[in-house]
């Protein structure tokens, strides 16, 4: 049986990396926020938009204001429980461009009533994904306690609840688009499908000390260089974000949106430090 939930869409924070408000980022003629609300609506009794304390946002959705200034995503959930403590909440980030019906169906159908939360495993590192998850009323006290200890990490909180964890039915559904390069990666994958490629990757400078010594062939389904780097960053635990790294294909500088060819020789260059 499907659980009846309210949905809370998170769009409160400003996106530093997009250089713009990521909720208003356009995808196929809609903002990411409009798209997310459209996907979520059939699965929830009511969809709310989480907004900053005193924040303004043009929306037709009912809003729930944070109780504190800049409390992070968990602050949105706290405000939702404060308003409706008896309902389970489906907490959803607005920056999941490939979120789909099948994913939400699975989450609501597989929800275990006895657990305080139900969530998916991240497709790359297997850890719990906090921003497309169901939080039951039994999680509300733990949340207040967590926030009162000045903790803010949504993933840390979810893991502390020992949630039911599910495998993603559509692997890309929870890949988030923090940056334009990642949105491009995801739209490329959605358009062209996930195709397997074999590439070799060389790392230089600081990155070279964080990976196995010899470059080895890597099998990937990434569509662009941004997707490949993100995949490697998460699986190898690389310390540098894409914004300070330069990508190289076949010994030529290129940019992150470049489609990844099969058999490519890729290099990732950290900030230069010659002289």
């Amino acid at each position: 049986m499907k659980t009846e939930v309210n949905a809370l869409i998170l769009a409160g924070g400003r996106s530093r990396r997009m250089g713009t408000d990521k909720a208003s980022l356009m995808l196929e003629g809609q903002t990411l926020l409009q798209r997310t609300a459209g996907v979520v609506a059939p699965h929830a009794s009511q969809v709310y938009l989480s907004v900053a304390k005193g924040g303004q946002r043009e929306t037709s959705l009912p809003v729930i204001e944070d109780l504190e200034t800049n409390p992070g995503p968990l602050g949105g959930l706290q405000a939702a429980f404060a308003q409706q403590p008896e309902k389970p909440w489906l907490l959803v980030a607005c920056d999941l461009p490939l979120l789909d019906d099948m994913t939400l169906d699975t989450l609501l159908r597989e929800n275990d009533e006895r657990k305080p939360a139900t969530a998916f495993r991240n497709r790359l590192d297997g850890r719990a994904e906090p921003l497309c998850a169901i939080y039951k009323p039994s999680a509300a006290n733990a949340l207040n306690d967590y926030l009162s200890r000045n903790k803010r990490c949504a993933r840390g909180f979810l893991e502390s609840l020992e949630p039911t964890l599910l495998d993603l039915p559509s692997p890309l559904a929870l890949d988030n688009a923090n940056r334009p390069e990642h949105l491009n990666e995801l739209t490329s994958l959605a358009r062209d499908g996930m195709r397997e490629k074999t590439v070799t990757i060389s790392y230089y400078g600081k990155l070279s000390s964080e990976v196995p010594a010899t470059p080895e062939a890597v099998t990937t389904t990434a569509a662009t260089l941004a997707g490949l780097y993100e995949e490697q960053r998460l699986t190898l635990g690389l310390s540098l974000d894409l914004d300070v790294v330069k990508p190289v294909i076949n010994d030529a500088f290129t940019d992150w949106t470049t489609p990844l060819p099969d058999q490519a020789e890729v290099a990732f260059l950290p900030p230069f430090a010659g002289g």
């Binding site: 230089y204 260059l269 230069f272 430090a273 010659g274």
Partner: peptide, 18 residues
């Protein structure tokens, strides 16, 4: 694209520069 690894008296090393 050149990188610098510094080795210190205390036995540690670090990629530095930029």
């Amino acid at each position: 694209p050149i990188w610098k690894n510094e080795f210190y008296r205390d036995g540690t090393s670090e990629w530095t520069g930029c």
